[in-house]
Design a protein around this nucleic acid. Structure first.
Lengths: 342, 342
DNA sequence: TTGTAGGCGTTATCAA
DNA sequence: TTGATAACGCCTACAA
């Protein structure tokens, strides 16, 4: 069953296709009555313009794409909401494109740019260690939101918005030290991670050093590769291992909130308590840290602000007001019940 | 800067466009060496075929779309993973399309069907009280996964996979009654909800009745409209209200796990405990119910099986093996720490 | 094995 | 205010 086209509508209305096109696209050069008549016929026949044909013909469409790597991260939900709101406010339309963990986000972006005639792109999540040559294939402006970029990449060549993962991580570990903790374990990304996982781990190391504490490698745990990364399950399993190792510690810093939740569970299950036996701290500021019992000390990233600034920079880029920009937001240490003085 | 097209590639290679097209699409009628040569040139020039043009020309593409209403629900994450895996296994490609809360999923589906020449559609989440006329505009097979359909719709006209929300809800409340609870509060959807929220509420009512308990309307709370539905925050705020009302109860059944988490927080905050003062139960079987402290009694939906069956039915539909199908999976009552005998 | 040409459904150009 | 017609980039008979 062939779909109905603009030509069919034109015939039914006894007008040319151009006129129908004008009616659909709210063009000025058309009389109100013919327009109304055409729209009526369209409605009756459930005609829907073919987007592929439109995109093919159109030279530009006011649309922004947000590419998100690993949709499972609840951290992004709020950001997406803000993106959507802000983009609509600019009268642009918005496409959310999920990118699989083992898919190349740039390839997806390049394809999407051509297909949808994008005006701009936001990258959310992932690691970003792409070659300059690859990135150059992107002809529209893009912003890296909450993504660590490899330091060897020229900052003049791209834009980004995020928190200072090193500094904020330092802040948390510094706080734990100031609370009297001397043996602080960490659950972090795998050691070959080049992104935020790495930065947060560096912050941890620096804080220990500044407090005159030696790094105990037996208290440094990486997430398990076999389990979904940054998941509660991962935090749970790793913490069980840590507890089973017999190595002493009084505080545990997990580089994400979900890991921290899993860690708490493992601790409770071992018959110990949080924060009396072990202090536990997370990172990100997910809702669950507030609702967990005990509530979990964390670093709250200002997601709304990050998202808003991302869009602002993107539009400045689009309007050629700037050529690049990097914005770093301060995050907030949320001291809650899961950490106590040692 | 104009994008490079298949014609440019053809010229560069000194061949016709057909040959290039054949190389791209792995057609048999082409010699290995010309193909290799063409692919080489394509790579060097970063040529990416325009998807709009392809979709426009192609009469059919082996792709399935999954439309998901309200991406915030962590319940769907696992399902999406399974969908993706299963669809890839069938050598189809997979599009995940988010639908905004106040957007009409059918309209989106109709548009997408034309644009991408879909072979099938999966609807995930939402309420589905669309007119038959509207649904008829969908010319490809579709399956409703985890969605309650209005009962006045002819079951021969569509397919679905889900749990029996009424029965499972009944099961939970029945269990609470058997544990000695007589005053069981509920946090449910708004009263004009026609979907799963309604079904779960009906199960609650029936279970009370079968245990000879009278429904106390002062213990029936709807989620707040002003807060994101089924969120932890909503459960938290509603429970604070419930606790503040002074109405006595010993158990609280929240129709989703996130609500239950929020409820626990409110209870702890009031200085009471779970399960000693109040038993709390959820619904869905999210990971967090296991990791929460105390772990939360819930109804675990068999998400993997639901997702697999959804795809199976969809492909049976596509291959015209069947005209419609409805599958209901049993869910599992997970008895955990948040509920105790009264 | 390769190339030419027509058409997919729409919008933009230009003339009426 | 309208309408015919040429692209948009690709695929696919059909011809060579």
């Amino acid at each position: 069953m062939a779909s109905i086209t603009i030509i069919d509508i034109a015939k039914m209305c006894g007008v040319g296709v151009t006129t129908v096109s004008r009616a659909i696209n709210n063009h000025p050069d058309i009389s109100e009555e013919t327009k109304a008549m055409i729209m009526q016929v369209i409605k009756e026949n459930h005609y829907v313009p073919n987007n592929s044909a439109r995109n093919l013909k159109r030279s530009a469409s006011k649309t922004i794409a947000v590419l998100i790597k690993g949709i499972t991260n609840p951290f992004f939900n709020r950001m997406i909401q803000v993106f959507e709101k802000e983009i609509q406010r600019k009268k642009y339309s918005f496409i959310l494109q999920r990118v699989d963990e083992n898919q190349d986000e740039i390839e997806v972006a390049i394809e999407l740019e051509k297909e949808k005639r994008l005006k701009g792109i936001v990258f959310l999540g992932g690691y970003f260690s792409h070659s300059k040559e690859k990135l150059d294939q992107l002809t529209v402006p893009f912003v890296l939101s909450t993504i660590g970029m490899t330091p060897d990449y020229d900052p003049h060549e791209y834009s980004s918005v995020s928190v200072d993962d090193f500094k904020e991580s330092y802040k948390m570990v510094d706080y734990l030290c100031n609370q009297g903790h001397r043996k602080i374990a960490i659950i972090t990304a795998s050691m070959d991670d080049v992104s935020i996982g790495k930065l947060r781990y560096e912050g941890y190391k620096q804080a220990l050093e500044d407090h005159g504490l030696e790094l105990n490698e037996k208290l440094v745990y990486s997430m398990k590769e076999s389990i979904e990364s940054y998941s509660m399950e991962n935090g749970y399993e790793v913490t069980k291992e840590l507890l089973g190792s017999g190595e002493e510690f009084t505080a545990l810093f997990a580089v994400s909130d979900s890991l921290a939740v899993g860690a708490c569970k493992a601790i409770f299950e071992s018959g110990k308590s949080v924060p009396d036996d072990y202090a536990v701290a997370g990172f990100d500021g997910l809702d669950i840290t507030y609702y967990y019992h005990p509530s979990i000390t964390t670093i709250r990233q200002p997601v709304e602000e990050i998202a808003e600034e991302t869009i602002k920079i993107l539009f400045d880029l689009i309007n050629k007001k700037i050529t690049h920009a990097h914005k770093t937001f301060p995050a907030e240490l949320m001291i809650r019940e899961s950490t106590a003085r040692k």
